[in-house]
Design a protein around this nucleic acid. Structure first.
Lengths: 222, 222
DNA sequence: ACTAACATGTGAAATACTTCACAAGAAGTA
DNA sequence: TACTTCTTGTGAAGTATTTCACATGTTAGT
């Protein structure tokens, strides 16, 4: 079998591996700032609390980027990972719901840093519609489908109350958007060809709570 | 071996299982509102896009809560899961950093709903110190250690810039806090006996991006 | 040129996690 | 009571993921 350069990887890549690529990317950005030219799997693992073998295995799914005896070239590897993750480009993002969380996300630097540019805001509140957030005018959710299409939106972030989230997502799907990040605490229905991920900020707190109550031993960390 | 009622589970429980317990808890809250008295693993699985076997296995780690032929009693199971997760009580939470994300979290209903009560706010910005957020006065971060101790804080949410996060966490650790939820995009060092979880909202977007670019087939969902 | 120290990439082994499949219990019907 | 339907709880089987361990290759020093 060919290497995975063209047309995406052949084996199924696990979700964990993809999440770890995000971690590597962030670590590499930092290493670049610190003027490292190369980095070993050992050092990368240490910074992300993983094992060196894990790092090498993850990367090996996508090709061989390192040099024996030396390690991985920082800038080069960072670029490669960006390409793999699809963040070596700009994604046009719309944010729906300019409430507590929505407003925070408009200014969330990490999104823009990874190429996710919020270019459209929507809300259903008349007081918010027409107002200016970070240079963007909030649009009326009433014209959602049409405006998403016209603005060529590729990714939608949903930050509305759970009660209305499904209706909104139905509109979003009708507009042909294929990727949705949902902050509402509800399970949304979308067609098979639409990617949906949920962000549940309480979940990690619940994990902390569980760990404290049960003296849970976290997975060993090197 | 005894059942796991007292003293916590004996086997190591996987992180995934714990996260799924959060999902079950949320589903059960909804089922309760819909006046279900019992629910089968099949129905619960359907609502959370899991398999019935998975649901049963997860629950079986903690005891046997169901009745054959009938299913699980909704209210009872919800209570049991709350106990397992340690959210059948109030946790005293302090939020550090009243910026974009911090302000959003102050009003984030899901936290309070699961027993995480934010009772203290901190910032280092003179313009914010002394101001009122949802009935709370923002304290100066300068007295962090002392104030955390005095307020008997058990959980800290860190929502400050990456550049200062480590210093703050060091203070938090000195105050004896054992659970930290970190929103800063950086890997923090904490002693072994402190539980630390990171919340990285860009990660899920990166997953979406990867999926789109690679036509990634998501894990089969029933 | 030789040696020692490093470090990758990867089959194979070890673990961990999920799903299967079924014995056994519960409830309703007749 | 007998029979049918439903559903749990759980060993065992099946997958998936992680870690090991080492052949192979690079670099630097002498």
């Amino acid at each position: 079998m060919q290497s995975s350069q063209a047309g995406g990887p052949k084996k199924r890549i696990s979700e964990s591996t993809i999440h770890r690529l995000s971690l590597y990317y962030r670590a590499l950005s930092l290493l670049e700032k610190e003027n490292y030219e190369t980095v070993s799997s050992k050092e990368l693992a240490k910074r992300e609390k993983l094992t060196p073998a894990q790092v090498r295995k993850d990367l090996s799914f996508f090709g061989s980027f390192g040099t024996r005896g030396l390690g991985y070239p920082v800038t080069e590897l960072k670029k490669r990972i960006a390409t793999i993750l699809g963040i070596d480009r700009v994604w046009r993002v719309a944010l729906i719901g300019v409430g507590n969380i929505g407003s925070a996300l408009v200014s969330y630097k990490e999104f823009a840093k990874q190429g996710f540019h919020i270019v459209k805001l929507f809300d259903n509140d008349q007081r918010k519609i027409g107002s200016n957030h970070k240079g963007m005018i909030v649009s009326d959710i009433a014209n959602l489908e049409q405006e998403l299409t016209e603005a060529r939106i590729e990714v939608v972030v949903v930050a509305v109350p759970a009660t209305v989230a499904q209706y909104i997502v139905d509109d979003v799907v009708r507009a042909g958007v294929k990727a949705i990040l949902n902050f509402a605490p509800i399970n949304l229905r979308v067609p098979e060809d639409v990617y949906l991920r949920n962000e549940n900020m309480a979940m990690e707190l619940e994990y902390l709570s569980f760990a404290m109550v049960n003296n849970h031993t976290p997975k060993r960390v090197k």
